[in-house]
Design a protein around this nucleic acid. Structure first.
Length: 425
RNA sequence: GGAAACGUGGCCGAGAGGUCGAAGGCACUCCCCUGCUAAGGGAGCAUACCGGCAUAAACCGGUAUCGAGGGUUCGAAUCCCUCCGUUUCCGCCA
């Protein structure tokens, strides 16, 4: 949620900034709505003050056993007007709320302005894409012999699901364990296990609702419903919803391994082959809750932690700074990590690391009490460390060998029981 | 699934139609006293909005907020209804 005070004070400036994010805010209309709000609210409060003072008189008269009927008629007249004003005010407040809750976060000043992914800025590259002395296949072909089965998944559930058997299933599991252990042992994150189904309130807190309903799967539950998490960011960040933490306890650093569920409603026809874009995929997610003063340094650190996984696995990647038009709803600044996929001869997103500053914290009223007794909104950050399915894809494609087998990256071998190669004919 | 209880400020907790934004305690901030690892005294200490104001803070006045939303009433933290959440007991169950 944007700071409503900022919107009120500088609607034009906010509208201009939102334009870079691809959102049109009619600043004049907003100001007009706010002016009406103010007017109706002032009138309402005057009437309330009137009513309160008349009520007080009635109480005093009655206490003295005197007749209060004259004041009663007066107060009834006020009450009529008051009811109208209160209803009007409630309506306006709702309109304002509905408008503001669908506005994305403002980009940090260091974020390049741009319309779409073509304006993203490459920050750095690491590793050399391997040259093959045979024709590199994509992960679908490489994986088929190792137990990666899309046809079976299609029979069970339809498109955009995968079944893994045997060595691929183990490799997938090993990758997740490797990531978790690295982040807990070397980077100081606390491992958490969380619900995969969450309430609407939680989805609202991190910004998936009310605007991105169509991206989510939901399940009926009693008379209501629960929503399936599109990322562990949702349950983990919502740890702090409505909480007041002692600033001295910061930062809080969490890592969670969960499945993620996305309807991919807007992605018809995109990445239909293989497991790049699935309705269900595993991800190891990093979440940090920071003091506002430290969140920008924390973003760099968190991104570095995600990069560490790629480096240990010796997977070539590049780091992008997303432009204003390509960032997610809640983010103020985002780095994407893209891993090299020989099967596509392209870099593909494998991690996205964002600082949401106080945007999510304001939605969920997550605050910290500082040493001098002040209360501040927390800053929240999250990043994939990494998407497990896509990491599997990257390993299969980058480590494939001419005979159809796949070498296991050295750093991963302890999690594979020492196995060095899978799929040896 | 059945039954019951409960939801008050950063925390604990009182209040049971008006004098309550809310006793008391803890924590915190400032001041004083004292001095040695702690104690004593005083003051302050929820949020949002509206207005006063020089449309900066502070300050002053007003309004709303005691899980959420409705209702009763001149007046609701307090009574009624619905919902949400938590806890306990019973049943069931991995």
């Amino acid at each position: 949620m944007l700071d409503i005070q900022l919107l009120r004070a500088q609607p034009e400036e906010v509208a201009a900034a939102l334009l870079h994010r691809g959102v049109t805010l009619d600043a004049a209309a907003f100001s007009a709505l706010e002016a009406r709000r103010k007017e109706v609210q002032t009138r309402t409060q005057q009437l309330q003050a009137q009513r309160n003072s008349l009520s007080k008189q009635i109480g005093q008269l009655k206490a003295r056993g005197e007749d209060a009927s004259a004041v009663m008629t007066e107060v009834n007249a006020v009450a009529g007007q008051l009811q109208e004003n209160e209803a009007a005010l409630a309506q306006i407040l709702q309109e304002v709320e509905a408008l503001v809750s669908t506005l994305p976060n403002l980009a940090h000043e260091s974020v390049p302005v741009g319309k779409d992914e073509t304006a993203n800025v490459e920050v750095s590259r690491w590793g050399e894409p391997r040259t093959f002395d045979f024709e590199a296949r994509d992960h679908v072909d490489v994986g088929a012999a190792l137990g990666l089965d899309f046809a079976l998944a299609a029979k069970l559930s339809g498109a955009r699901f995968a079944v893994m058997r045997g060595e691929v299933a183990r490799l997938h599991r090993a990758l997740a364990q490797f990531m978790l252990d690295t982040h807990t042992r070397e980077h100081g994150y606390t491992e958490v296990y969380v619900p995969y189904l969450v309430s609407e309130a939680s989805m609202y807190g991190t910004g998936q609702l009310p605007k991105f309903e169509e991206d989510l799967f939901s399940v009926r539950h009693g008379d209501g419903r629960l929503l399936m998490i599109p990322t562990a960011e949702v349950p983990v960040t919502n740890f702090l919803r409505g909480e007041m933490v002692d600033a001295q306890q910061l930062p809080l650093k969490f890592v969670a391994h969960t499945p993620c569920f996305r309807s991919e409603a807007g992605a018809y026809g995109r990445d239909t082959r293989g497991m790049i874009r699935q309705h269900q995929f595993d991800k190891v997610e990093l979440v940090r809750i920071e003091h506002p003063d430290n969140s920008w340094a924390a973003l760099e650190e968190l991104t570095g932690h995600a990069e560490t996984i790629l480096r240990k696995l010796e997977l070539p990647y590049r780091k992008l700074l997303l432009c204003t038009g390509d960032m997610g709803f809640s983010a103020a600044k985002t780095y994407d990590l893209e891993v090299w996929l020989p099967g596509q001869a392209a870099y593909r997103e494998i991690s996205s690391c964002s600082n949401c500053v106080d945007f999510q914290a304001r939605r969920m009223q997550a605050r910290a009490k500082t040493a001098d007794g002040r209360k501040v909104l927390l800053h929240t950050l999250n990043g994939s460390g990494l998407a497990v399915g896509r990491t599997l894809v990257a390993v299969l494609e980058n480590y494939q060998q001419a005979d159809g087998s796949v070498r296991i990256p050295e750093a991963l071998r302890p999690w594979m029981g020492g196995v060095e190669v899978i799929g040896k004919p």
